[in-house]
Design a protein around this nucleic acid. Structure first.
Lengths: 193, 193
DNA sequence: GTCCGATGTTAATCAACGTTAACAGCGACC
DNA sequence: GGTCGCTGTTAACGTTGATTAACATCGGAC
């Protein structure tokens, strides 16, 4: 009764396992057989859930991009000042990256493996998400050039998205606080001089 | 007379083209045929220069790791204070990343595609390079935990290595200065509180 | 109780890939 | 001027991979 539509639990299970494998070995380094085996099926069974390997990747990246953008926009809209907005964006991105290291890894690496036209759509979403950051930064530094704000944003993403490569020596809260501090300072430093 | 040994220009040409392709499409996304074509040869011609595709990748990553470590160590040894050492490391890494965006990309992504035992050796070199940074940071902040210094180092790497993804809107000098400022501030902020 | 759609399986197809074999040109050195 | 090593080529081989076909099971709707 609570479930209005069919529970596509298998799809999600596959997507989750695929994210893990793609993050570890790269899209081309993982076969359909590997993906099936990871969820206790044979390779061809995946075609009951996805149109093909590329479609699976496309759906995964599309979902990530949409989640990042939607919640990012929501938080910016809810903020009263650019400073608060930036803080909210930082917390959102850090939470997402710490909760979904595999997704972040795939998201930053495998765009090139997605076929058109999904590729274009994903790029659009990624850019829109980045532009939220740029917009906030420009509100905080009205005299700054857009170019600089964009470059600073990408550098901050690089810093935040490095989490998966830090072999979890710090506990989650400490790591979140550290990343927040470092990215904050970096983004401030980007507009001094 | 100036050339003591044979000039292996073809090898370097291939390695350079391979770096570009691996960075763009990933190791598994590039075929031997692609690599040959990129330097005006057929696929099998590559076997005159490398034992195979994996050996080519291994040599590439090994070379990068060695260059980073050697010059990093040199600069740290030449510095009188940790502050000067950190500045020197930052400049070195930024120069390397801006001059060799493809190499940096492959270096951070494709370790997993290198077979043992080269993989272990590359990891060792990468770790040793990171430890140079950690050592300098701990000299600057003797009270800090090693874990934190290591995590901060990896985050800084993420920031610096993001260059290839910033679609070169800023000119090189501006970008170098921006990255230096952001990474400096980030690494300082990592040890406040 | 039957039918059917959803979800699996195994077997088959076809292309692509890494690698090796067999052969050719060519320039250096005796 | 002949030989040889270096660096190419094309053809062939064996494997793997994505995808499709043909067939099985099973649970719920009528």
């Amino acid at each position: 009764m609570a479930e209005v539509s069919a529970p596509p639990t298998r799809r999600l299970e596959i997507l989750s396992a695929a994210a893990e494998l793609f993050a570890r070995r790269g899209y081309h380094g993982v076969s359909i057989g590997d993906l099936g085996r990871a969820v206790g099926l044979t390779g061809p069974a995946l075609y009951r859930h996805f149109r093909g390997k590329e479609a699976l990747l496309a759906e995964m990246l599309l979902d990530i991009s949409e989640r990042l953008l939607t919640e990012g926009r929501r938080r910016v809209a809810a903020a009263d000042t650019p400073e608060v907005a930036l803080d909210a964006l930082l917390r959102w991105h850090i939470d997402f990256a710490l909760d979904n290291p595999a997704l972040i890894t795939v998201h930053t690496r495998e765009l090139g493996s997605v076929p058109q036209p999904e590729r274009r759509e994903i790029r659009r979403l990624q850019r829109a998400y980045a532009e939220e950051w740029v917009r906030v930064l420009l509100l905080m530094h009205p005299e700054a050039a857009e170019d600089r704000a964009r470059a600073a944003t990408h550098a901050a993403f690089g810093l935040l998205n490095s989490t998966p490569h830090s072999t979890g020596e710090l506990d989650r809260d400490t790591m979140a606080t550290l990343l927040h501090a470092m990215a904050s300072e970096a983004l401030t430093g980007a507009f001094r001089s």
